[in-house]
């Protein structure tokens, strides 16, 4: 068996904000992504899903200090303990990120060609004509029509969908092993979203790219991510194969999330079941299950004791005292083994 491209073990991240608060954002995150695989991370705002991507990259908002413990292994090398120079080298050649808003992630006063080729190591040796040609090739690979002309353009001259494709071209230029995509299509129309996600899928397949796809829209992962990790209050509360998690969720939060998705198929619902209450306050130390205050199945134990890991199926686990599905084969596989395959 090949080793995963990204493996995160017992990752805890604490952020110290400029206004003096301490936020315990991530708790005991375990996950791994193989080459050519897409792992979907789904959660509401404040669930910690973006901090997860930022911790992998080691970048946090200005003036925010972060402490991360645990391991973040990129092809077996720990990014958290690597020397700064080695870390920069590993990240620079191995990891790329696609951001939510392509308008703000691109520099408005730099031509597309220069931004797309920025991560190429031999860029400095390239002549202008060669750089334009390389940029056009990279743009053509992400289905940008008329790539030679677009390479000379500035970001404001392109539509939102084209800009996001430029963002993807820039991310793919350095042939990374791991792609972090944080809400890559949230700002786009459904039809454009479709083509952009199809594009990511295609490159994942042809280049064997490991992809971490972060979104708040669980529907978007269906048919794309092989596995899903559902985050709530800085923890992965449920994880498993996409079909298993969306068809038979074990955690009440996942079930509530799925119920509140407005659908175009199925019976018409005039009142959507919303999850009452708000996400947990991350400045307080977490005791018990983070979802307990909003959970319809919660009992006293939920707010005092950390929930055990419930094994709902093959590679499908949920951290819950009162899960919605029956456990399978209690002795057939140890819990820690199941957790490691997250």
């Amino acid at each position: 068996m090949t080793s995963p491209v990204l493996e995160v073990r017992s990752l805890d991240t604490t952020l110290h904000t400029p206004d003096g608060r301490t936020l315990h954002v991530l708790h005991g995150i375990d996950l791994s992504i193989d080459a050519g695989e897409c792992l979907g991370v789904v959660g509401e705002s404040g669930s910690g899903k973006s901090v997860l991507a930022r911790t992998v990259l080691g970048v946090h908002p200005r003036a925010t200090r972060a402490t991360a413990t645990g391991q973040v292994l990129l092809n077996g090398e720990d990014l958290l303990t690597a020397a700064p120079r080695r870390r920069a080298e590993l990240l620079g050649t191995g990891v790329a990120m696609v951001h939510q808003d392509p308008m703000t992630s691109l520099n408005p006063v730099v031509r597309i060609a220069d931004q797309v080729t920025e991560s190429l190591t031999n860029r400095r040796r390239m002549r202008r004509r060669e750089r334009l040609r390389t940029a056009a090739e990279l743009l053509a690979a992400v289905d940008v029509p008329d790539p030679a002309r677009r390479a000379r353009a500035y970001p404001h001259e392109l539509s939102g969908g084209l800009r996001q494709r430029v963002g993807i071209a820039a991310a793919l230029a350095g042939s990374p092993a791991l792609l972090l995509a944080d809400e890559p299509t949230t700002a786009l129309d459904v039809t454009v979203q479709r083509t952009v996600l199809d594009l990511l899928d295609r490159h994942r397949g042809t280049r064997g790219l490991a992809t971490l796809l972060i979104t708040h829209d669980i529907g978007l992962l269906y048919g794309r991510a092989r596995r899903i990790a559902v985050m709530y209050g800085g923890r992965i509360v449920e994880t498993g194969p996409t079909e298993a998690v969306t068809e038979a969720p074990a955690h009440p939060y996942t079930a509530a999330l799925l119920r509140s998705v407005p659908r175009v198929t199925g019976p018409l619902r005039r009142v959507l079941p919303a999850v009452a209450g708000s996400p947990p306050d991350l400045s307080r130390p977490a005791v018990g299950c983070p979802f307990a205050p909003r959970c319809e199945r919660a009992e006293a134990v939920c707010s005092t004791e950390a929930p055990p890991l419930h094994r709902a199926g093959d590679g499908h686990t949920a951290a819950c005292h009162f899960p919605l599905t029956l456990p399978i084969g209690p002795a057939s596989a140890s819990v820690s083994k199941a957790q490691e395959t997250v």
Binding site: D143, V190, R194, G219, Y222
Partner: peptide, 24 residues
């Protein structure tokens, strides 16, 4: 029909939008 097919939804296979590969 294309807008409808492009809506991602859990449990619904990705339909073909039928759109020609041109930008709006």
């Amino acid at each position: 029909a294309a807008l409808l097919a492009a809506v991602p939804e859990p449990g619904r296979p990705l339909g073909d939008t039928g759109l020609l590969p041109a930008d709006p």
